[in-house]
């Protein structure tokens, strides 16, 4: 059959069971909607929990963890960013795994002693999440992926990044500066 011969009305199902004179077709209508209804109910019962399972990480939030960066006295007069490699362990799903991150610690003023006197910069580029690297010779952070540059305080010097590097929330515990390396930032 050629496509131009296509006539939709020719394909209408002829219902042999129902008298054509019946104006309401109630039984037939009931069964039709019954099929749709049962189908929809089964679909919803299966798909809604499946979607919920898949998107549940959205509401699960941060894992809280307190990891020391070092003694607070050590950074009291650290006014230029100091690179610190931090190794820790955390529970990923059901297993303990090692984690590692490089952060940049800086005292906002000479003789800093409280958590809010410090800044711990996350090295994760606010563009697309590559690791920025401190360039000692230029005193700035370079991103190897798309070429963003940040100054020592994390402010953008050159895009494509358009947000400053993130600061971790800090606390002081037993004379040590502590932070949560799993703190998530919206890039």
């Amino acid at each position: 059959m050629a496509l131009t011969d296509y006539k939709p009305e020719a394909r209408k199902v002829v219902d042999l069971d129902t008298p054509q004179t019946d104006p309401n077709l109630t039984r037939r209508r009931f069964l039709t909607w019954g099929i749709y209804g049962v189908g929809a109910a089964v679909t919803v019962a299966l798909v809604v929990p499946a979607v919920g399972y898949f998107i549940s990480p959205i509401v699960s939030g941060n894992t809280s963890l307190q990891v020391p960066v070092g003694d607070i006295s050590q950074f009291a007069s650290q006014t230029v960013p100091k690179q610190i490699d931090v190794n820790y362990e955390y529970k990923d799903e059901f297993k303990q795994v090692p984690g590692a991150i490089t952060v940049y610690v800086q005292a906002k003023k000479e003789g800093a002693s409280k958590a809010e006197d410090f800044r711990v910069l996350s090295p994760i580029c606010t563009h697309l999440g590559c690791l920025v690297q401190w360039k000692e010779e230029n005193k700035n952070f370079n991103c190897p992926c798309h070429g963003s540059i940040f100054d020592a305080n994390g402010a953008v010097i050159k895009g494509p990044a358009n947000k400053p590097l993130n600061n971790y929330s800090l606390d002081v515990k037993d004379g040590k500066l502590v932070f949560n390396p799993l703190q998530a930032f919206v890039l």
Binding site: P68, G70, Q83, D85, V86, Y88, E89, Q96, V97, P98
Partner: peptide, 22 residues
Amino acid sequence: TGGTNATAGGNTGAGSGGAGAA
């Protein structure tokens, strides 16, 4: 050694490394 920080050179590590031994 925890992670691949064998090359980290000069920086003070903190936290608990050496997870492989656990």
